[in-house]
Each structure stands twice: as structure tokens, then as C-alpha cells.
Write a protein that binds this DNA or RNA. Sequence first.
DNA 1: GCCAACGTTGGC
DNA 2: GCCAACGTTGGC
Length: 152
Amino acid sequence: MKSEPDAFSIDDLASQPDQTTHWEGVRNYQARNYMRDEMKIGDGVLFYHSNAKPLAVAGTARVVSESYPDPSQFDPDSDYFDEKATEKNPRWQLVDVKLVKKFDKPVLRDAIKNEPELADMLLIKKGSRLSIQPVTAAEWNKIHEMAGVDPE
DNA sequence: GCCAACGTTGGC
DNA sequence: GCCAACGTTGGC
């Protein structure tokens, strides 16, 4: 899951109550579908800092809820308000995410690009802007190895 | 700041 | 249903 640290960083996640947040504001159907259809409680999450210095996987988190409607779509004062969404017919779903570990040494995008085993990782594919992307078990393990952290 | 890639909108 | 125009993302 990508986040711009100016908007919401891994440190922000760490400072949330119970180190848990609602992953609000996703307004892309494909990304929504991953949360709605693919993410299950207990799934691991790589927390990636986009539009940042450095660009890096900053740590890991875990999915701790089923998907449910993103409340911000109903809030006229929210940047994420969607006038076409109704309580009966919500458009946008989210999951709750809880911090697992902030990496002592973030895994830099540059390092990922230089790692042959991660050549197929969606994150570094050209034009891959999706804010929520699937990660394979091999990629998950490799990122942990590069971070010097045992995968859970 | 630039711009390529991608997604969405809306007229037809 | 097509597609041009526009807006956004996000690395560089």
C-alpha cells in the first residue's frame, strides 16, 4: 500500500490509537477492488512511501478488518467526498490496517530496482501507479531479507 | 518542475 | 460504445 508521507507516513500510523488506521481516500476502482475482494484479515502489507525522499518500503502492517464502506465518501467536508455515493449504495470500500513494524532501514526503491529477484515487482514497473498492489510471497520474503527483518 | 502513463468524464 | 479532453499520479 502506497502513501505519501506528507499526507500519512508510517510514523503517523505508529502514532494512531492502537497503531491502526482506516485506509481512507482510495478513489481508484482497481485499488478498491483489491481491498474489497482480495485483502483478508491477517494479510501482510508493505507500507510504501511514494512521492517522498527517500522512496522506500518503510515497514509493514497487517489487515485487521474486513472491507467496509469508506465513511469519508459521505462527508461533504472531506477531500474524499463523493456526491454520487450514498449510504445505501456506497462506492468506496476500505480496510483497517495496523502497524506491524517500521523498518530500521527502509528498503529503498533504488535497491529494489537493483535486485534481480524483484525485477517483476509491480511497484517498479513503468507506469504502475496503482496505490494498492498485490505482492507475491517471494517478494514479501525478499523485502524482509533486505530489511534485515524476519518475515512473520 | 516536467511529463509519461493512466483513469475518468462527457459529448456524440 | 467510442474517444478526445482533461485530471491525477508519481518517478525523475
